[in-house]
């Protein structure tokens, strides 16, 4: 049980690190937005792995946090995409 928890937790850490690296690296804006979402998913995985309680049941608080986090991530992604589109239109008009 501890091994499973650790496996998921470490996977989350790896995703987080990869995602942050991709967001900060030079590259197309869309790629960076996707990388940011990967980092967020890694963080959510850490939360969920930490909440795992085996037979005793899971801690509900991290689940509520992850749910809120997903809503925030979706809105932030929407804003980023809208900005990217606006920029493309502005560049075309010039």
């Amino acid at each position: 049980m501890i091994a499973t928890q650790l496996l998921y937790g470490l996977l989350g850490v790896a995703l987080f690190a990869l995602g942050v690296r991709g967001t900060l690296a030079d590259g197309p804006f869309l790629r960076r937005v996707v990388a940011w979402n990967v980092a967020g998913a890694g963080l959510f995985l850490i939360f969920v792995a930490g909440a795992y309680g085996g037979a005793a049941g899971a801690d509900p608080v991290p689940h509520a946090l992850v749910l809120t986090g997903i809503v925030v991530a979706v809105s932030a992604t929407a804003l980023a995409l809208a900005l990217a589109r606006r920029l493309k239109e502005a560049a075309r008009d010039e």
């Binding site: 987080f16 963080l43 850490i46 946090l65 932030a76 980023a80």
Partner: peptide
């Protein structure tokens, strides 16, 4: 756009700290 990326990475860092403290 640059402001957004900095802000998003910043809040991820903050959330990471929150995760550590809660766990």
């Amino acid at each position: 756009m640059r402001y957004l990326v900095v802000g998003l990475v910043g809040s991820l860092g903050f959330l990471g700290g929150v995760a550590i403290l809660y766990l």
